[in-house]
Design a protein around this nucleic acid. Sequence first.
DNA 1: GTCTATACGGCGATAGAC
DNA 2: GTCTATCGCCGTATAGAC
Lengths: 202, 202
Amino acid sequence: MTKNKTTEQKIFDAATELFLEKGVDRTSVREIATKADINLALMNYYFRSKENLFDAIFSQLVKKNTRKLIKILDSDLGLEEKVRQYVVVYIDMLSENPLLVSFVMSILHRSRERITEMKAISSLYSTDTFAQQIIEEGKKGNIRRTDPTQFYVDMLSLIAFPFAIKLLVMDKRGFTEEEFAEFIQERKERVPEMLIDSLKLR
Amino acid sequence: MTKNKTTEQKIFDAATELFLEKGVDRTSVREIATKADINLALMNYYFRSKENLFDAIFSQLVKKNTRKLIKILDSDLGLEEKVRQYVVVYIDMLSENPLLVSFVMSILHRSRERITEMKAISSLYSTDTFAQQIIEEGKKGNIRRTDPTQFYVDMLSLIAFPFAIKLLVMDKRGFTEEEFAEFIQERKERVPEMLIDSLKLR
DNA sequence: GTCTATACGGCGATAGAC
DNA sequence: GTCTATCGCCGTATAGAC
């Protein structure tokens, strides 16, 4: 059963949930201890500090969720198919973990100076072979728009941003959770079409 | 001269800067007092609490920056021209205040339950006449894709998200501030074209 | 490994003198 | 309106018993 968690796991899981839900800065270690049903002192026994615990959680969260995505970008699929798969897999992943975007955004804002140290963040943006592929297609004359940075930023924006403004959209349009989920599902077709079409623009 | 600021103004301005730079939760009232060069107690004399001060700053920030944008959406410009102007004005506004996006994102994440701030946030998304216009154009057969919510979310995503991941992009592409600014300037042409084209898709 | 108990510093907020 | 002084609370970290 999942009941047999080690103390370390219990702390890790409780903190992950709280960090995602309320943000790192609004989560106290006492709160984590209570939720994990352990003593406050154990918190510092396993992880030296809150910041340390956060680092562990953040890189695990990123690694776990980006592996599949990086595999797609580095595959030898054709450009269009690659974009389609990337968008769909990314949206599915965020649908299962809708707080991830806001969480990463807040971290990006939070650790302005430490950003280079945060190796985990880097893996959120890894496009070397993908960029090469776009340039190649341009040389072959298959596409007209060949700035890989702009294209990748467009792609990330259309995938991720809607999750960041989820509450705004739900509030304004009066969506239920289900309706919002449906709204997102539609984007799995809409976004790839838009992106692929944008490559062909004059 | 701008030197003759009231105490209230001094607090307000110092707090605005700090909130934008470091986030609300990582800014202490003592820090605000020091930066504003006033006594800590005055902080509570003018604004009853830190949260109160934050509310005042947030709604002022939103109002100040969205007035122009709402005016464009509600104007009687044609759809294409409206999109073009909206994107350009929005990007220019964010270029002048590049921390605004992360700030608003963090608030959106922060105030899940709180309604007070939500009212200010609501004005970030006001599209009644704009939505109507898209539906009208669809009826006239001028465009094929007529979901105003999807379109508006696409538009916001392509405009705002790049600012939220500014540091990631700069780090990965090795951009200087100037190069990033140039990257953003290019989007003033790229994004409207993409959006307008997406309306015509099958 | 787990607990109790506590030190410590910083926080938001206020009372009260001037 | 502005200041000093201080309150009570909380988050972090550790010492030491079991």
